[in-house]
């Protein structure tokens, strides 16, 4: 299974094995990371599952579609080029050593 590294706002890192096919959002929920809220449960409607993908690893995922791009305009923390909605990031074999940075707030 690919290894994922989640970097919390306080600088600490949590590393874990991620099942293929799961979304980064659901992995965060499974591990109880409070930094991701996901009010809409993954329906790409609420913009509260915002994360930053390591700038060298954006190729691990397909580019955001129009709806994700729309919603990224509404994230509560700074929107960066590396911003993604974690409910749209599905883990594949190519995701080994993926680094995900949590924003400071979701609402």
């Amino acid at each position: 299974m690919p290894k994922l590294h989640f970097i919390h706002p306080n600088g600490q890192t949590t590393s874990l094995d991620a099942p293929i096919g799961k979304s980064v959002m659901n992995i965060c929920r499974d591990y109880g990371f409070s930094e991701v809220i996901a009010e809409c449960g993954g329906a790409a409607l609420c913009a509260t599952c915002h994360v930053y993908v390591d700038e060298n690893q954006s190729d691990m995922f397909t580019k955001p579609n129009e709806i994700e791009n729309q919603l990224l305009e509404f994230v509560a923390s700074e929107k960066k080029a590396t911003s993604r909605l974690s409910c749209q990031l599905l883990i594949t074999e190519n995701c080994d050593n993926l680094r995900i940075y949590f924003p400071i707030q979701q609402i």
């Binding site: 509260t48 729309q70 919603l71 305009e73």
Partner: peptide, 10 residues
């Protein structure tokens, strides 16, 4: 749907 979800923004 993109038209509607834009109107119903967070």
């Amino acid at each position: 749907r993109a038209i509607i979800s834009k109107v119903l923004s967070p």
